[in-house]
Design a protein around this nucleic acid. Structure first.
Lengths: 137, 137
DNA sequence: TACTTGACTTGGACTTCGTCCATTGTAGGA
DNA sequence: TCCTACAATGGACGAAGTCCAAGTCAAGTA
């Protein structure tokens, strides 16, 4: 995620105050925010920024592969700035907390040809569910 | 899923026309329906059934472990009556089609203790994404 | 069989998350 | 500095899902 802005500029991204702020918010250690949380934090730095712009910008960042969307069932989608290092997610069924995890092995290789039904499979998403230490206490 | 109704009755479920219809709809080969699709099909058999009842009933079936919820990112949740035989999903990024698949190996075992961060992990959900033969054509 | 009661259903209002669009603003090249 | 195509705005809209007060009914009891 570092030097995200530089990378985007070379791809022809027009650099506006709003986009800069959204990128900065994601770049913090506030990981896995919802769009509304991103908006709330963005507003602290740029009070006039609109929800629509936050959604637009997040959508573009996802398309560009700079940010990953995570659907957790816990209502709103979350945005994960750690899109460059492949990883999966571990989430707490009680409070919705998310952690990035790195399982060993390659789940893609575990899907035999006979189980692919003619699909060209390109991606795997692995979500572990459990109870986090705080909620277990 | 067979004899679902019998199983539910022994668990103290009150058997109403509405619940019976929802169970029947899921029991068909129409797999992975959204709540609205379930409602649409239920209405064909029982015109007065309300959306709220469909949502309630689906929620109960999920709690009882008879039906699994699948979040596909493609907007609405889908309901999978095949909850008794563990499996994962393969879905088409273009049209949203879903298939049940059975990868080899156990992804739970692939998450080392050091990557569990104190969570008690109990479940894994594995989603393969790709393009189905129809959409590739 | 009729009665009773607590569980179930209803439908409409409401909430949340997200998209759309016409208008206004502005980044960055000439 | 000026132009213009791209971006931002905000308010209306839409889809998915939840909530609730009032009415209904399954099934246990007599």
């Amino acid at each position: 995620m570092s030097d995200l802005l530089g990378r985007l500029r070379t791809r022809g991204w027009r650099l506006t105050a709003q986009r800069r702020v959204v990128a900065e918010v994601l770049d913090g250690d506030h990981i896995h925010l919802t769009a509304d949380e991103v908006h709330a934090r963005a507003v602290r730095r740029l009070p006039e920024i609109s929800r629509a712009t936050v959604y637009n910008t997040l959508g573009e960042l996802v398309n560009l592969g700079e940010v990953a969307e995570v659907s957790t069932d816990h209502r709103a989608k979350r945005y994960d700035p750690n899109a460059h290092r492949p990883h999966h997610h571990l989430l707490c069924a009680r409070c919705g907390a998310i952690r990035d995890v790195h399982p060993v092995g390659d789940p893609l290789a575990d899907l035999p040809e006979s189980e692919r039904f003619g699909f060209s499979v390109s991606e795997v998403e692995l979500t572990y569910r459990g109870v986090c230490p705080d909620c277990a206490a």
